[in-house]
């Protein structure tokens, strides 16, 4: 089990109306790279299929935000890794089973009169609980969204400052998830 960074080309889910990748990112228009970078967890993956061609590595799999919860349906994910690369990630041994999340209070990095700026709160979770890590569009160089699960009970999304031990998500060139691109 390990976390790995990959460029997701398609992510069809029911929870977020398949909007985890914006239309601009989906089409790769407006100068953006097609797809969006995420950190995923191999313990969420089943039904891995290789879609690679000679020149382009690609694979498809079912991905569960919370694999322990029978109420949770899977998503269909297509990413820019070949099946062999994904399998190699399955065999990776993480440096630690504990992940320290520097959580930003109120999910609000800049503060406001109602939610004054407060220092981050270091919170340790098991690596098995991490569902995925997504870029924070307003400030991708310093923050990420981390989605993790509390047992089979529920899913939590928190804004964190970037843990330098993680692979970077900042190499994407797109702007915000609300960008829809030209019609």
């Amino acid at each position: 089990m390990s976390l790995f960074v990959t460029r997701v080309l398609e992510w069809e889910d029911e929870r977020d109306s398949s909007n985890r990748i914006s239309m601009m990112e989906d089409r790769g228009i407006g100068g953006s790279i097609q797809g969006r970078y995420f950190i995923l967890n191999t313990n969420r993956i089943v039904d891995l299929l290789d879609l690679s061609t000679l020149a382009v590595p690609k694979s498809e799999f079912k991905y569960f935000d919370n694999p322990f919860d029978r109420r949770e349906r899977y998503s269909r994910v297509v990413c820019d890794h070949s099946a062999a690369q994904i399998i190699a990630h399955f065999d990776d041994v993480p440096a630690s089973q504990a992940v320290t999340l520097p959580i930003v209070p109120h999910n609000q990095p800049w503060g406001s009169p109602y939610t004054p700026l407060r220092p981050t709160v270091n919170t340790v979770v098991g690596i098995w609980a991490i569902a995925y890590v997504d870029r924070y569009n307003p400030d991708p160089n310093h923050y990420v969204w981390v989605c993790y699960t509390k047992g089979a009970f529920k899913r939590v999304e928190v804004l964190c400052t970037i843990d330098i031990g993680w692979p970077t998500l900042t190499s994407t060139t797109t702007t915000t998830s609300r960008d829809q691109g030209p019609v």
């Binding site: 322990f68 919860d69 029978r70 109420r71 509390k150 047992g151 089979a152 009970f153 529920k154």
Partner: peptide, 11 residues
């Protein structure tokens, strides 16, 4: 969590 595999159980 007493039982992290059971969605009925909270931490």
């Amino acid at each position: 969590f007493d039982n992290p595999y059971d969605h009925r159980d909270n931490g």
